[in-house]
């Protein structure tokens, strides 16, 4: 058999003359060119911010960031040095990190508990309650700002890292519960049943089975939640004027835009460097999460 197959002439595909191949490649050239130009255009703004952050204030006074292309020696780390020895900025970065980590771990854990209940525990009104959760998915943050502002003042936790984390946690829950419930429900029933028959408690099942099996979904969710809270401005500006996450610190500088571009540019670049690193490191999960979550 094998020898026959080997000897049989390859499907008589008409040998394409060289000119034909060249024409085919040339025919696609406009598409390649178009995509190359668009791709480059898409990168320029971010590169522009990077180059701006690498130029001294006096160089920027004399021209745009593109001067670095003709004069690469003008690039300097001095803006970054100044920024990183500025305690207000480093404090802000640290605060943002605390808020983002807290607002990632807490809602995912709480949502995973609830998602397990929605997926595998029987209780009256389960579907009805899940519909309420889906309904909460679209409630705009703006609906909560004013009452929570008053509540935080009453409780005396206004303008603290905790107050920011709690707000992000609550608003991260509906999406996290929705996503994890849909993921957990896909876990084969036999695995759970046999664990239950073996006498494992629901908590044991949750920690030993569900959480490890749910890791891919949890990873996507964690990346999203981390980026979302790291990048947040609205909540930070409302409840964290003095706690001052990095977005608020940059926002304060923006009011004097022009005179302080040597602070704004590197601070903005640092604030977006971490998300970009996270994005490139976990691109696969990021895209998966995006596809799962494009109902939000």
């Amino acid at each position: 058999m094998a020898s026959v197959a080997a000897r049989a002439p390859v499907v008589p595909r008409p040998a394409e003359p060289l000119s034909g191949r060249i024409l085919r490649v040339l025919g696609k050239a406009p598409v390649h060119l178009f995509l190359a130009v668009i791709g480059l255009l898409w990168l320029i703004p971010t590169l522009g911010l990077l180059f701006t952050s690498l130029l001294s204030a006096s160089d920027l006074g004399g021209g745009g960031w593109w001067q670095i292309l003709s004069k690469p020696s003008a690039a300097t780390w001095q803006n970054y040095d100044a920024l990183l020895s500025n305690e207000q900025i480093t404090d802000s970065l640290l605060t943002t990190l605390q808020v983002a980590i807290g607002s990632t771990v807490l809602p995912i854990f709480i949502a995973a508990l609830a998602a397990y209940a929605f997926a595998w525990l029987e209780f009256p009104g389960r579907d009805w309650l899940f519909i309420v959760v889906i309904a909460l998915l679209v409630v705009p943050l703006q609906m909560a700002l004013i009452p929570i502002f008053s509540l935080y003042n009453t409780l005396g936790i206004f303008d603290t890292v905790l107050s920011l984390i709690l707000f992000h946690t609550a608003f991260g829950l509906p999406f996290a519960i929705f996503l994890l419930r849909n993921f957990f429900i896909g876990i084969p029933k036999d695995i759970l049943e046999s664990a239950r028959i073996d006498g494992a408690s629901e908590f044991r099942i949750f920690f030993r089975l569900i959480l490890p099996l749910g890791l891919p979904a949890i990873a996507s969710l964690a990346i999203f939640q981390f980026l979302w809270t790291w990048n947040d401005l609205l909540v930070a500006l409302t409840f964290g004027r003095d706690t001052k996450p990095i977005t608020v610190a940059i926002f304060n500088q923006l009011t004097e835009f022009g005179s302080n571009i040597e602070i704004i540019a590197p601070a903005s670049f640092i604030s977006l460097a971490l998300p970009i690193v996270v994005f490139f490191a976990f691109q696969r999960y990021f895209v998966q999460g995006l596809l799962a979550g494009s109902v939000k």
Binding site: W42, W230, N231, I250, P275
Partner: peptide, 9 residues
């Protein structure tokens, strides 16, 4: 890539 960057940045 801009998706990873905050809308603010």
């Amino acid at each position: 890539m801009p998706m990873a960057i905050s809308l603010f940045a």
